[in-house]
Every structure is written in structure tokens, then in C-alpha cells.
Design a protein around this nucleic acid. Sequence first.
DNA 1: AGCAATCGCTAACTTATGCAAGCAGGGGAT
DNA 2: ATCCCCTGCTTGCATAAGTTAGCGATTGCT
Lengths: 127, 127
Amino acid sequence: MLMIVSDSKQSDLGEFIRQQRERANLSLRRLADAAGISNPYLSQIERGIRKPSAEILKRLSRALEISANSMYSKAGLIDDDFESPSVFDAIDADASLTSEQKKVLLDLYRTMSRANGLAAENDQSKE
Amino acid sequence: MLMIVSDSKQSDLGEFIRQQRERANLSLRRLADAAGISNPYLSQIERGIRKPSAEILKRLSRALEISANSMYSKAGLIDDDFESPSVFDAIDADASLTSEQKKVLLDLYRTMSRANGLAAENDQSKE
DNA sequence: AGCAATCGCTAACTTATGCAAGCAGGGGAT
DNA sequence: ATCCCCTGCTTGCATAAGTTAGCGATTGCT
């Protein structure tokens, strides 16, 4: 069973960006301005009409203060099977968590992953 | 691993690709074919005439069997210094979790961070 | 009532990406 | 010598990216 996944990721990239933007309470114009791109273009990106280049994705990720990796991953530009940004490492490296909290989070994450059969060939939500 | 983030990376991206190609003993056409792009275009990429999109970089990295991350890094599309793998992004990008599980984990993470007084989902301050 | 500012989106335009076709040169085999 | 296959490079073109200008619909202010 091969993965036909690539397109579905790409399709929800726009929505992902929109979610991040709204999470940050930014208007289209404000985010576009912060990212150094035009606001109509951002609008089109969020609605999936245009596919942004990596350069644009980088600027957006910076403006949204999220990692470029997750952005590229969402955009289907990284083969996650190969190089998944490990949740383990991220939690471990996080400075805002106590070690107890890390344990709890890691344990929960492990439990969840196991519950799914450990396989990384999972669906990704379509709302 | 400290890296200077500048445009000089972008400029030697082509040479980097050429080095990788020669290291693998591949001709322009063979690599282009393996990556699914045209050979003149690859030639132009290697000489810095054209800037490949992330999609092309991804295919090249796969064909060259190097990580997309190092490719993007070379292309100057990732701010390495800035790029601490945040828990937020790592969870979000994780392929082994369902969207519900992600919500739970993220919510817990946010709660924990907030409890420590360090906002994980913070405002964006502008200059 | 107006006027101004902001919201997201549409239309028309410029520019760059990425491709197919073709060119010049180099070996090796016949 | 010709023929064939390979090397990398140039040219011109279709299409997608990304722009500026402007639209209709809100919201607040006087």
C-alpha cells in the first residue's frame, strides 16, 4: 500500500496557515505585511488557489513564529517518513516545561502512538 | 552547528547540488531524470541561473538521497538558528497521531506552559 | 446622514519557473 | 572517414507565482 498522501497535505496547507494566523489574531493584511508578501496573495494561498514557494513559506513561518519544518511538512515538501521532527526531541528540548511535565507529556505521547499501532502511515484529518 | 544565515548560502546552492551529483557519479541528465525534472533546468539550477522551488529541491534531495532539511538549509530556506523544534510544531507535524490526539496533546502542552508562566501561545509583538 | 479605516476578495498585470527542442563537442566502434 | 551515444549548455515558449489597483461589505467616529 503506497501513500497517495501528498495531495491531501498540500490541500490543507492553506487552512493550516489560516488557523495559525487566526490563532495569532492577525488579519490577512497584517500577516501578509509581516511576512513581506501581498495580502491578496496570502488570501489565495489560504484558500488553496496558489501554491506558495518555499521562500514564501519561510517568511510566513517566521511571521507566524512557527518552524519552517512544520510548514514544509504541511506543504508536502518533506517526506515525513524519512525525517519526522521528533516530538520526543522537541519536548525534551523545551525550556518552558519542568521535567515532570515532560514525563507526563512524553508518556501520553507514547501511549497515543502505540494506540494507533505505531505506524506512521496514518490519515490526516479532513474536517 | 552554527551557521551563518545569509544569501551566500543561496548562491552556492547550485554548487552544492553539483557536488552532490558528482559525488554520486551522476550525469546531469541522469540526475534530472531521477528527480523528474528536465536536464537543462538542472543545469541552470547548478549554475545559479534559476532558483528551484521547494518542490524541485525535495525531488532532488530524494534523488540524491540526502535530507530535504539539509537541502533547504543550503538553499537558505530555513533559519537554522531560529529553528528550535518547537513542541507545538513537532506534534502538529507528527504523522502517527490523529487530529484529536494532537488537540489533546497540544492543549495539555499549552496548559503546562501557561502554568509555568511562560506563554507557549503568545501574542506577536511588532516593531 | 456622512467619512475614514479596515476586513477579505477579484481582476489585470509583470516576472520567474520549468520544459521541449536543438546545438556544439568528445569518445568509441565500425 | 561516418555513425552513434553521451556530455553539458542555449534558446524560446507556456504556465504558474506574486504583484498593484480596486471592489463591496463592515465598523466606528463626528
